[in-house]
């Protein structure tokens, strides 16, 4: 069985990557290959990374408040590149409850807010991949 490949990205301008790093480490310990892009990534950079790295999951952590702008932009670009249908796109961070339905409508499959355990996130990923691992 091949490993799950996950892109962990920090879109936008906030400089808080503790959460992203904790997740990256947890995904690694769950046997995944984690491509970590670092801070301040544009939607274009995230999309190019998703295409070139052929990832199963794009997990974006955002705490700046710009999620309504940046996350749907990534989905749109991924659709343009033809990779959205095969990729699980997730968001996490400080995201108000009322924004979550709108983000899901825009194509973010799930949103994880503070308090979610790393185990829950890993379980979710394993159960919702869009491609098989054979």
């Amino acid at each position: 069985m091949r490993p799950i490949r996950v892109l962990v990205a920090k879109p936008g301008l906030d400089g808080h990557d503790r959460g992203a790093k904790v997740l990256a480490r947890a995904f690694r310990d769950a046997g995944m290959e984690v491509i970590y892009t670092g801070l301040r990534q544009t939607p274009e950079q995230i999309t190019q990374a998703a295409v070139q790295e052929d990832v199963d999951v794009v997990a974006m952590s955002i705490l700046s408040g710009a999620h309504m702008h940046l996350l749907p932009k990534v989905v749109a670009l991924m659709k343009e590149e033809g990779v959205y249908d095969d990729t699980l796109v997730l968001g996490g961070g400080v995201i108000p409850q009322e924004d979550i339905p709108l983000l899901k409508e825009a194509g973010i499959q799930e949103i994880f807010t503070p308090g979610t355990t790393t185990e829950e996130t890993i379980e979710y990923i394993k159960n919702n991949l869009k491609r098989d691992l054979s």
Binding site: G31, E33, I35, Y36, G38, Q45, Q48, A49
Partner: peptide, 22 residues
């Protein structure tokens, strides 16, 4: 490197590749 224990890895070279990543 890949972990010899979990087979997982953190591939972090892109962090330093901002000039060409898009």
């Amino acid at each position: 490197p890949t972990s010899p224990f979990t087979k997982g890895s953190i591939l972090g070279d892109r962090i330093r590749m901002g000039a060409v990543s898009a």
